[in-house]
Amino acid sequence: MLKGLLVDLVPYGKAFLENDHEWENGIARFWSNLGECPIVSRAQVEARHQEWFESNESYLGVPFGVQTKDGIPLGYFGINWMVPHCRSVMVGAVINDPDYWGGGYGTDALLLLMDYAFDWLDMRKVWLGTMSLNERVMRQMEKVGFTLEVRQREAVYAAGEWHDSLLYGLLRDEWPGRAALIERFGLQARPE
């Protein structure tokens, strides 16, 4: 478990898998899946879980569930793709309940994940993608110190319009460390 101030990163186990049906049909997926609005049955979600469990393909990712300090499952934060010889990881994230957006939960989880990538896995680059419609994530990337490296024109179709796909990167020597950013953002533990 990776312990933060507002959230912990834990194995993506039963408590999270049980929520996946509701989450996959929820509004958060529109933002995390670049405009996709999945409408999926419980059986489809379970089949996907089964496929995941039984997959023999080498999977160079590290999935975490993110939960509040008193154990409420919120979503997924994880390494979606690792390229060990380039020492780079592409990360993905979603907080499913909109009530937990904007309260520092996502920032706390992201700092934990980046600390894990740099200080435990010894990576030297963290990168991720979003869409130009997602101003909340764009603000967060700038706040944490990511550089917008690539703007792929009209690579995303969301809500009936074309948007750009944005790729952000942060190098190890640009990473001030989790403690420094916690102090800069004034993140503090709070009673649940």
Binding site: C86, K125, V150, Q152, R153, L167, G169, L171
Partner: peptide, 26 residues
């Protein structure tokens, strides 16, 4: 193609980290 950006220090190549230039065509 239009040059849409640079993935900095992205690939390990011959003892160094090199950038990747990204292009797009509609």
């Amino acid at each position: 193609f239009t040059h849409e950006g640079t993935l900095r220090q992205h690939i390990r190549w011959g003892g160094d980290y090199v950038a990747v230039e990204m292009f797009g065509l509609l």
